[in-house]
């Protein structure tokens, strides 16, 4: 679909092969028991259009790494570059604007705004980032709902939808600004296996259309959907720093 085709470019117009470049990232948290390192010098490169699974046990650091890539959190040390932009150095306001345009985030508990209809939830990112003309936003939101398979739910409130439908709506919202990167943190953790499978199929389809999709999951049954799996344990990647090639 055309609405998914907008390429990511940096300020110079150069379209890099490596979209996400994580170099020597360490993330430490101060706790009452002293400093705790969630990530220890992690380096990782992800290319455009890849579907990557981040796996690991609870507390291994996979969600922390995902948050770093999405610009939700900042590293204590190291560098994260996305499409040539060093996101760790962006001020908070600029980071929010960058995130809105370049990263679509899918949560485990969907996190749809309960007082907005599904359609309004999808228009909201376009509203915040002012990415499409106002008169086009509704049409675009309906197209995205059609794309994720729930066009008939547009005018309902989130609580009226099943978990799977809510997650599809959340994915549609993640695609609202046509970001090149989609990140999902345990997106099927709250869904039954059949629904979970349909969500993973959707991610495959998105990657096929050029999106770079990174999913945190510990559901081994669905490993087959991913072309690359990065395992993480105690804040350290267990295998290669660069994830394949396309």
């Amino acid at each position: 679909m055309e609405i998914l085709q907008r390429p990511v470019v940096n300020e110079t117009g150069y379209e890099p092969e490596v979209l996400i470049d994580v170099r020597g990232v360490t993330k430490s948290f101060a706790t009452s028991y002293g400093e705790f390192a969630a990530l220890k010098g992690v380096s990782l490169q992800v290319r455009r259009g890849q579907l990557v699974a981040l796996t690991g046990k609870s507390g291994s650091g996979k969600s922390t790494l995902l948050n770093m890539i999405a610009g939700i959190d900042r590293p204590s040390r190291g560098e994260i570059s996305v499409a040539g932009v060093s996101i760790a150095s962006l001020p908070e306001g600029a980071l929010a604007a960058w995130r809105g345009r370049n990263v679509g985030v899918v949560f485990q508990f969907f996190q749809l705004i309960p007082t907005l209809t599904i359609l309004e939830n999808i228009v909201l990112p376009m509203d915040f980032c002012n990415t499409y003309p106002r008169r086009e936003r509704r049409e675009r939101a309906l197209s995205l709902l059609d794309r994720v398979g729930i066009p008939e739910q547009a005018d309902k409130f989130p609580t009226a939808l099943s978990g799977g439908q809510q997650q599809r709506a959340a994915i549609a919202r993640a695609l609202a600004n046509d970001p090149p990167i989609i990140v999902a943190d345990e997106p099927t953790g709250n869904l039954d296996s059949r629904t979970a499978a349909s969500i993973f199929e959707l991610f495959v389809e998105l990657a096929g259309s050029g999106k770079t999709v990174i999913v945190v999951t510990h559901e081994k049954d669905f490993a087959g959907y991913f072309e690359h799996t990065v395992a993480i344990s105690d804040g350290v990647l267990l295998d290669g720093a660069t994830v394949g090639g396309k």
Partner: peptide, 16 residues
């Protein structure tokens, strides 16, 4: 607060 977090995730700035 969580809705604020979600809105910031999808691109809203502090001023917005």
């Amino acid at each position: 607060v969580r809705e604020i977090g979600v809105m910031k995730t999808i691109g809203a700035g502090s001023r917005q």
